[in-house]
């Protein structure tokens, strides 16, 4: 199996995700972009896992890591959405550029 195809896909996804995080003003969209980044990483994990298994090292480590990341991502999205919801309730807006109270 060729690894580079998966890696290219993951890189593309990662870049799209970063772009989304940096350009989107909608908080929900930012969260979705983060999901893209995480899934890009997941693809890498699984791909390397399979690659390593073929190379002779019997391992499910990559897949297990991917599972962990999915679980953590789910939790992170839960927290993120809750924050977005609270920001919305307070300010009637989910524009992340508006939430700049922590300015030093």
């Amino acid at each position: 199996m060729l690894l580079n195809q998966y890696l290219l896909l993951a890189a593309a996804l990662f870049c799209i995700g970063v772009y989304g995080v940096l350009t989107r003003k909608n908080g929900v969209m930012v969260l979705m972009s983060i999901e893209l980044i995480l899934n890009a990483v997941n693809i890498n994990m699984v791909a390397f896992g399979v690659h390593n298994a073929e190379a002779g090292a019997a391992s499910v480590g990559g897949a297990v890591f991917a599972l962990f990341i999915i679980a953590v991502a789910a939790a992170e999205v839960g927290v993120g959405l809750a924050i977005v919801l609270l920001i919305y309730r307070n300010r009637r807006s989910i524009n992340v550029a508006d939430a700049s109270l922590m300015k030093g």
């Binding site: 930012v30 992340v96 550029a97 700049s100 300015k103 030093g104």
Partner: peptide
């Protein structure tokens, strides 16, 4: 001055 409160600035710095 680095702490602008703008999430996107933080994110770009991080990336």
């Amino acid at each position: 001055r680095l702490q602008s409160g703008s999430i996107r600035q933080y994110a770009s710095l991080m990336f």
